[in-house]
Design a protein around this nucleic acid. Sequence first.
DNA 1: CGTCAGTTTGAGCGAGCTCAACGTGAGTGG
DNA 2: CCACTCACGTTGAGCTCGCTCAAACTGACG
Lengths: 244, 244
Amino acid sequence: MPFNTDLKCKPTSDFSCNDCRMNAFCLPVALNSSEVGQLDDIISRDKPLQKNDCVYSAGQAFTSVYAVRSGCIKSYTTNSRGEEQVTGFHLPGEIFGMDGISSKVHTNFAVALQTSAVCEIPFSHLTKLTGVLPALQNHFFRLMSNEIVSDQQMITLLSKNSAEERLATFLLSLSVRNQRQKFSGTHFNLPMSRSDIGNYLGLTVETVSRVFSRLQKLGVLRVDKKEIEILDIDQLHELSTTTD
Amino acid sequence: MPFNTDLKCKPTSDFSCNDCRMNAFCLPVALNSSEVGQLDDIISRDKPLQKNDCVYSAGQAFTSVYAVRSGCIKSYTTNSRGEEQVTGFHLPGEIFGMDGISSKVHTNFAVALQTSAVCEIPFSHLTKLTGVLPALQNHFFRLMSNEIVSDQQMITLLSKNSAEERLATFLLSLSVRNQRQKFSGTHFNLPMSRSDIGNYLGLTVETVSRVFSRLQKLGVLRVDKKEIEILDIDQLHELSTTTD
DNA sequence: CGTCAGTTTGAGCGAGCTCAACGTGAGTGG
DNA sequence: CCACTCACGTTGAGCTCGCTCAAACTGACG
């Protein structure tokens, strides 16, 4: 079973949601094939992004939401002290950019952590479509609600949990998201740096590194640079204290 | 005939969004008066909630979102250890309950912190209405996006900021939300306990109490039980380190 | 071969937690 | 009316987890 996500995507033009590996859990999930056709018509698929390429910047006018087709996108804001705050990592099949809907301006930056492909979905077109496709409207409401729920879980994690619990929860989240893509849930590459992980989890790089070492010593993980193998997923669950 | 026997009746049924003090920033904000009428028709306004009354519980089927008309509603979840995690305080004009949209089950509990009145908006009716009123659909998308943005700001606050910065930011948030209701932004009562504040901000009761004392000693606040007077709002802004 | 970003490991420190004691006010019941 | 309780809030003392600072290692890339 492949454990990395470096799949090369095909040229952009003739690509349809119908052919996409992610269509079982991306936007088209609620639609029949003629409706998917309508969605396809409004989606634009530009050439792949290279590492560090920017999808949009904070302060930039909001026009579209995006779906990840391959690779990994990092969202982050900057606070008043100019420090970066990572707000999420987006894997294939996930939608991002919904933070800009309220004020018509993006509050986050979005950059590629590796070679990635994204689908751009112009929001004004999407809302026209949701007006006539109730299933799509409902699905989009649910996607936004999902984001609210997961942000709230993040708040709980930061507010109540130790460094070890945070990292364990993070790894389990990556595990299930990899499985959803039909990749291994126990053997995968981290697309992000230790410092991105630390920033996301409210920890310093040193703490992240120490916890990785500790979990390796405990026999829960095998860590080699960015390559992670989960050796004892039950113990990882216990360490994470998340029941879901 | 006694009028208080039918507990299911709507004692405020002749109440309309048009008459509501909050309509300038609640759901009706994007609608003309005939559209507000359609919205009114689907909203039910039950009798006021007493302190500790529950609007819904985690695990309960999701059917409606809610708007606060008066009082204050606290949202919270419980984690795997059974600990409470406060996820928000909802003041008049604010919508809550959107966490249940994705899974059709509430993930939060919602309880009244004081005598409160809420409007119940059945979600299936609301989505029918958003299907035919594009302005309402857009506004609801924006409300959900707002919630995402404010949850992400909360993540940043918890991840990067000290106890003092968290409490200062919290007080400033209450201040602007009070002003929006045309109440004083510098002199108000806290609807929630110290322990609710601490829980929300990822701090212990003792720390919240100590920071209140310190801010009072600095001359930034006057604190008397739940009564808060902001004496130096500029310094409070500096302490909060939020630019917005 | 030097540089540089990313990572690991160690040593010491400090903000906020834990534990404990005490104060306060509202409610309750005699 | 006081006595009692109970939830809530304040303050102090000591401890701990994760931060800061520092040093060394690794691999990629010119």
